[in-house]
């Protein structure tokens, strides 16, 4: 069979490379019987359009941000609980845990997708054009986010004015002061040199940014047991490799940023205590899996 896999990241990005590696692996293991064409950079449409195509079966697979999933299945918002994990190692372990994998069981009924496993990008940080020494400085700042509810609620709770904006618009918007601050990971900050336009950084590690590998439910139900097994194993291997990659990269990238001429402060869970409490009142209702994820996280932290 010829499969199609879509994702939003461009060819040089680690997610796209993982998709290519997955395609190569499936081709080899199936002895050329299956092939997977990768469509990077939202070539087949943005994530919402890709989800729709997955639902009709026009698209076979995709790597989607959990942000997109959480807009459909609110329980996935639990993965964005602020300080659910304290560092990238815990994030990596949590996303491979049974508690996280169990969340995927909701996908077929709620979204017509079969979730195979998680990948991720780096933890979220904050950068600002002007003073940013502690979360208190976020008060009243126009802060760019990708539009999904858990992160919006978090920043609303800090007193910032979260502003949705597509990534390509961010650099200019920072340059001319249309926004004051951004929520971003180390990787993107370095690639696009956002520090040239916003040189105050709060290393907060406040949130994970998971990605999920999915197969269309319509396609899945017609696959043979061995094909399912092949796709599942191979995709999981590559998704795990993405997690390992960002886990390894995070410390290096932090060092690199600390070596630059930018002002850096740090923030911890305690500094965000009020915002976290407010977030909790909203999301403990919507995200029923929060307790089980917290339990898994506690086990990881304890070990």
């Amino acid at each position: 069979r010829d499969f199609r896999l879509g994702l939003i990241t461009p060819p040089p990005h680690r997610w796209t490379q993982a998709a290519e590696a997955f395609a190569e692996d499936v081709k080899q293991k199936s002895g050329g019987e299956h092939s997977i064409a990768v469509f990077p950079s939202q070539q087949l449409g943005n994530e919402a359009q890709m989800v729709q195509q997955l639902q009709t079966g026009a698209l076979d697979m995709a790597f989607l941000t959990v942000a997109e999933i959480s807009n459909r299945v609110p329980d996935f918002g639990a993965l964005y609980a602020p300080y659910l994990v304290d560092n990238i190692d815990q994030a990596a372990a949590l996303l491979k845990s049974d508690a996280a994998i169990e969340l995927l069981d909701q996908l077929p009924a709620e979204a017509g997708l079969v979730g195979v496993g998680y990948g991720m990008a780096g933890l979220r940080q904050v950068m600002s054009r002007d003073q940013l020494e502690s979360p208190a400085d976020l008060e009243g700042k126009k802060l760019r986010i990708t539009p999904f509810e858990p992160i919006r609620d978090f920043y609303m709770a800090t007193g910032a004015a979260p502003t949705p904006m597509p990534l390509p618009a961010v650099y200019d918007a920072l340059a001319n002061g249309q926004i004051d601050a951004i929520d971003m990971d180390f990787d993107s900050i370095l690639i696009f040199k956002f520090y040239e336009r916003s040189d105050k950084m709060l290393i907060s590690n406040h949130m994970m940014f998971p990605m999920v590998g999915v197969v269309s439910g319509r396609i899945w139900k017609d696959l043979s047991a061995e094909d399912r097994e092949l796709l599942q194993t191979s995709m999981r291997t590559q998704l795990d490799a993405v997690i390992d990659h960002f886990q390894a990269l995070e410390k290096e990238q932090e060092m690199e940023l600390r070596g630059l001429d930018i002002t850096i402060h740090e923030a911890t869970k305690e500094d965000f205590a009020d915002a976290i409490a407010e977030w909790e009142t909203i999301w403990s209702e919507k995200a029923k899996s929060l307790p089980s994820l917290r339990k898994a996280a506690a086990e990881i932290k304890g070990s």
Partner: peptide, 16 residues
């Protein structure tokens, strides 16, 4: 409806 038809058109939400 979406259980029967696998069509999720009526549950899709706008972003903001």
């Amino acid at each position: 409806f979406q259980g029967d038809t696998f069509n999720f058109v009526y549950s899709e939400k706008t972003n903001t």
